[in-house]
Amino acid sequence: MIQAVMVISTQAKPRLLKFYNFQPPEKHQDLVRGVFQLLSARPDSVSNFVEVDAIFGPGTKMVYKHLATLYFVFVFDSSENELAMLDLVQVFVETLDRCFKNVCELDIVFNFNKLHTILDEMILGGQVIETSSEQIMKSVEEIARLEKQSSTTSLIPKSISERFSR
């Protein structure tokens, strides 16, 4: 089972946190810090798997991808296939890319709840629900359309019109 999905910036800021095993909110930041410390110590050339028994309990591993200024981290237990998890990270990133057209950190910062929508279409209760980014996008777009219809104030802007300095 997948235990957590995290997106952390290279500045150690959490950009997306989703736990499928309950973690008390006051622990979240510690987890982010612990994961980031492991990640930042790893050079690019090494494998994408890290054992995280110390952070998430016995038998847990995480797989990560480092893309531009972001780390995409999936934490899972021994019942999952490591290589498949790596592919799943890829699916997630591809879906984001489709959704935001060349996704960058700012898209993710300002649309964090759209990320949740995407994630909920992909993983449910720690299990993979859909692995086709096209199918995921279909559902997400449908949800966005529904929101627009019934509300004047859209919470999920399609794209960011302005760019801000960081």
Binding site: K18, F22, P24, P25, N113, H116, T117, D120, I143, L146, E147, Q149, S150, S151, T153, L155
Partner: peptide, 17 residues
């Protein structure tokens, strides 16, 4: 409304246990 429900459920999953 749908937007309300959507945010409500999202909040339910994130803020409550």
């Amino acid at each position: 409304g749908f937007p309300e429900k959507r945010i409500g459920y999202l909040g339910l999953m994130l803020l409550l246990d």
